[in-house]
Design a protein around this nucleic acid. Structure first.
Length: 887
RNA sequence: GGGCGGCUAGCUCAGCUGGUCAGAGCACCUGGUUUACACCCAGGGGGUCGGGGGUUCGAACCCCUCGCCGCCCA
């Protein structure tokens, strides 16, 4: 006997431990088995599981469990990311909170030791959370982006790309984050709309003959202005080109130049040019050979290139001071309030400054070519397909990727500098020294580059580095390219694009054959969940409350492609109930001796009910298989929900009761065996989505009846059921029974016939075949309709309530219970429904164009529908007439 | 400014290549001591599928346009 219901709290940890210790998570060794591999999007090592992870990993687990059951050598390779900025930030914050020294006071080595300490302390959190969710990752292969092997891969890639001139050092403007005091890449910058103002400043002409007005949203940058640009075609300013203005406050004369960048339509038509602090101005400066004057230090405080009284001032304080000074000088012409986009660091949240520094860049343009071709040629499929456009757009306009970060936590750049500044890029310090010796002819002290690499540099190598590259490992040979990457579309540029570029460049093959972009989970109002907004839902709380399976099922069912998911606990509760429903069905089976029969063959069952459920099971298996194979996870979940609850429980179990309790031993045995068989198939089909509950039921039914060929459900074989199991004849038969019961119930309810009433169900008009079906299934129809019996009759007694189903006229003699007025209303409503249906169909069929153009089967369908509706309407009208004659 | 996605019952959403496609779950209403299940069973009400136009014999589904909402890129 099963427990009252499934208890996830005790069962989940037990089941997970059993799976893991059995080795089921590792791919089977059989060399004949087709490989199927997924690499996990590595979560931040010190992070914790949020609901987006729960969705993403549930879908991966559904896929991997499915393919594992299909007999493939299924590998789900887990691991974590060192998450440079994010992790360093957390540790710095902890140090500050504990009143410790700052990172810089502490020194690089000690600080990094602290980060490793923190990693040791918290690094297991997220992987344990994945276990709670039921993720069947192969933990024996777990990797970390900063582990020895992956670090070696990073060095190898860096050095190789450098030798290929695809990594280079360059001095140019970067997006500078003054809080981290580091460069960040373009995509780490987010534009935020903020309130600001255009400050209109007058710059006096040097010769005192007038002024020129420029506008800026960043007044402090004027300290670094080296020109004023006007459009060469702008008549207003033509005469000023080549002359100069004297820059207020600074006192420096700067030229008035002609450049198309100045738009005569915008503002005054003249723009101030600060080549060192604006991307557009930088280009103008290059074109016109303007000097670059850097006015900021790394924290974006004003430096020594500005007048004394500004030096050391924060950029925003300097802004105020500049405006005030212009006002005092009588040169402030206007302050125009505006809302405009301002670049912010996505991690730090502070305003980003364009800043002139030396950084390392990847020539992304060159690497992007083959990555674009791979998707164009379908070697990698992006699903949903709509993401291809986004991918192409980005890749075709890709900019050099700035990969150096002025941080400490990460892969230190394998570049060494000689005393004369000469750079030696090698995988090890020894090799760098050797290279230096070649150049200098003797040993010179070398200094390693202080910077580390962008976190995404190492994650870009993830699909092959985790499999052992650059070593030619067995795993790499067997599991690369990986089959499917499941990830959020928010990291299509950060991660997917980079993996495509690096994967193809270093292995000659795409890193994955298919990318499935899952939806993003949002809060109830549709906003992206984020820690800073405080609207995150903790999936572990939900697992605690409902169990992992209901959460998994909810996320799977709501994972419709390309949509946002708004999670509600009501939904989870509903799927918890669904699990309990299945549990109870299993309990029913057990209670009624539904156990596996030796050598059971679903194709050989004879009873129509059993033949029917076998066919329905086949259909469901087909839908579930096709759906999961195509990443249509919600389709699989919904098909299972409907089949298990509405087909198996509501109808099969109910209709099987007379057989299970009846005298016919053969029919009973067949039904018991069929019910048990169908339950086993259900457990298999549901297992990828609800692994815990299904495995538990599988275990608990292991001893019932004939022994199973397979051990644990996690490694059991996926149901492959042939379409020959479908049986149209039994479908018609059970269909009629179900329809008769449903309609009969509806009539009873609408007429308020008391539940205790047991009238016979009269079958008045029916074909011989229909009559045979109804006679054969009399007891069960009667039972489910709460009728005394099913009677074939030639006429109905006075006051019997008629209803028509599939052309069969039934009647329930319940005259004594009913209100004539209610019945008349009911009949009138039914008749009206048929009438509108008839009108609708007749209009169609009356249209010659429809009959001529529509597919024959569609026309035929409509003809049948018309005939059926007309017949039913006539019968019901007759009944109504008789009723009115009585009154 | 460009691009993408969404707008279907009170709520959250299904509706694939146009023809039972107007659906599900929750919520709501009515009834239920039908021995698997109240985390249940039976029945019911409720939507001119964002607005307008078009293509078609036929459109929630295709095209155009407008309107909101969200996201991405400038």
């Amino acid at each position: 006997m099963l427990e009252k219901s499934f208890d996830p709290k005790t069962a989940e940890p037990r089941l997970y431990a059993t799976w893991e210790s059995s080795g089921a998570f590792a791919p089977i060794a059989d060399p004949a088995a087709e490989p199927f591999s997924i690499v996990i999007p590595p979560p931040n090592v010190t992070g914790s599981l949020h609901i987006g992870h729960a969705l993403n990993n549930t879908l991966q687990d559904v896929l991997i469990r499915f393919e594992r059951m299909r007999g493939k050598a299924a590998l789900w390779l887990p691991g974590t990311d060192h998450a440079g900025i994010a992790t360093q930030m957390v540790v710095e914050r902890q140090l500050a909170a504990a009143g410790n020294q700052s990172r810089r006071d502490m020194g690089r080595e000690d600080f990094i030791a602290k980060v490793w300490e923190w990693k040791a302390e918290s690094g297991g959190t997220i992987t344990n959370q994945l276990r709670r969710l039921g993720a069947s990752c192969d933990w024996s292969r777990e990797r970390f982006t900063l582990d020895e092997g992956l670090s070696a891969a990073v060095r190898k890639v860096f050095v190789t790309l450098h030798k290929q001139k695809l990594i280079y050092r360059d001095k140019r403007l970067v997006n500078w984050d003054p809080q981290f005091q580091s460069a960040i890449s373009d995509i780490e910058v987010e534009q935020r709309e903020v309130d600001g103002a255009y400050y209109h400043f007058a710059y006096p002409l040097e010769d005192g003959t007038g002024e020129i007005v420029v506008a800026t949203t960043r007044p402090e940058t004027m300290l670094g202005d080296t020109a004023v640009a006007v459009n060469g075609k702008d008549e207003r300013y033509k005469h000023l080109i080549g002359r100069a203005v004297r820059l207020p406050i600074v006192g420096r004369p700067i030229p008035i130049i002609a450049d198309d960048y100045a738009d005569p339509e915008k503002g005054s038509g003249a723009v101030k040019i600060t080549p060192a602090h604006d991307f557009n101005d930088y280009q103008v400066g290059k074109r016109n050979n303007l000097p670059l004057i850097n006015i900021f230090d790394p924290q974006a405080r004003i430096n020594e290139n500005a007048p004394k009284e500004y030096q050391g001032l924060d950029r925003f304080a300097a802004r105020k001071k500049v405006v005030a000074e212009f006002e005092a000088l009588g040169l402030l012409r206007e302050i125009e309030k505006t809302r405009h986009a301002v670049p912010h660091g996505d991690r730090s949240g502070v305003v980003i400054e364009p800043y002139l520094t030396d950084q390392w860049y990847v020539d992304a343009k060159t690497l992007a070519g083959p990555a674009i071709a791979a998707v164009e040629e379908g070697r990698t499929l992006l699903e949903p397909k709509t993401w291809e456009k986004t991918y192409f757009e980005w890749m075709r306009n890709i900019e050099p990727w700035c990969i150096s970060r002025q941080l400490w936590w990460g892969h230190r750049i394998p570049a060494w500098y000689g005393p004369d500044g000469k750079i030696f890029v090698e995988e090890t310090e020894e090799e760098a020294k050797a290279a230096a010796r070649e150049v200098y002819g003797h040993d010179e002290p070398l200094r390693q580059d202080e910077d580390v690499l962008d976190t995404w540099f190492s994650s870009g190598l993830w699909p092959f580095s985790t499999l052992g590259w650059p070593e030619e490992t067995a795993d790499l040979a067997r599991f690369y390219p990986t089959n499917t990457l499941v990830t959020g579309f928010d990291i299509i540029f950060y991660w997917v694009a980079r993996m495509m570029m690096m994967g193809i460049h270093f292995t000659g093959q795409v890193p994955f054959k298919r990318v499935f972009f899952n939806a993003l989970v949002r809060d109830a109002s549709g906003a992206k969940m984020s820690k800073s907004k405080g609207n995150v839902m903790d999936p572990l709380d939900l697992v605690d409350q409902y169990g992992a399976d209901p959460l998994r099922f909810t996320l799977t069912a709501m994972s419709g492609q390309g949509r946002d998911i708004k999670l509600s606990t009501q939904r989870i509760e509903g799927y918890r109930n669904f699990g309990t429903k299945l549990w109870n069905a299993a309990n029913f089976c057990q209670f009624n001796g539904c156990v596996r029969a030796e050598g059971f063959d679903p194709a050989a069952v004879s009873n129509p009910l059993n033949r029917w459920i076998v066919g329905e099971t086949q259909k469901t298996a087909q839908v579930v298989t096709d759906s999961i194979a195509a990443c249509g996870f919600d389709g699989a979940a919904n098909a299972l929900y409907r089949f298990i609850w509405n087909t198996y429980c509501d109808w099969y179990v109910e209709l099987s009761k007379p057989l299970l309790k009846g005298e016919d031993a053969a029919a009973k045995a067949e039904t018991q065996a069929t019910a048990a068989w169908a339950l086993d198939v259900i457990l298999k089909l549901l297992h990828p989505i609800m692994p815990f509950l299904t495995e538990e039921l599988w275990t608990q039914t292991a001893d019932l009846g004939a022994p199973r060929a397979e051990g644990m459900l996690i490694t059991a074989s996926w149901p492959e059921l042939p379409a020959s199991l479908l049986d149209p004849k039994s479908e018609v038969e059970i269909g009629l029974i179900v329809a008769a019961i449903t309609e009969g119930r509806s009539v009873r309810a609408e007429l308020n016939v008391p539940g205790s009433a047991r009238p016979p169900l009269l079958v008045l008009e029916a074909t011989a075949a229909q009559r045979a079906i109804l006679e054969a299934n009399g007891p069960i129809v009667a039972q489910l309709l709460r009728a005394s019996e099913v009677q074939i009759a030639s006429s109905a007694p006075q006051g019997a309530i008629p209803f028509v189903v599939q052309g069969v006229t039934f009647a329930l003699p319940v005259a004594e219970f009913i209100d004539l007025a209610v019945e008349k209303a009911r009949l009138a409503k039914e008749i009206a429904t048929h009438a509108s249906d008839i009108a609708h169909v007749m209009k169609k069929l009356g249209n010659p164009a429809f009959v001529a153009n529509a597919k024959e089967e569609v026309v035929e369908e409509n003809r049948e529908r018309l005939a059926e509706s007309e017949a039913a309407k006539i019968k019901l009208e007759g009944a109504l007439a008789r009723l009115e004659a009585v009154v």
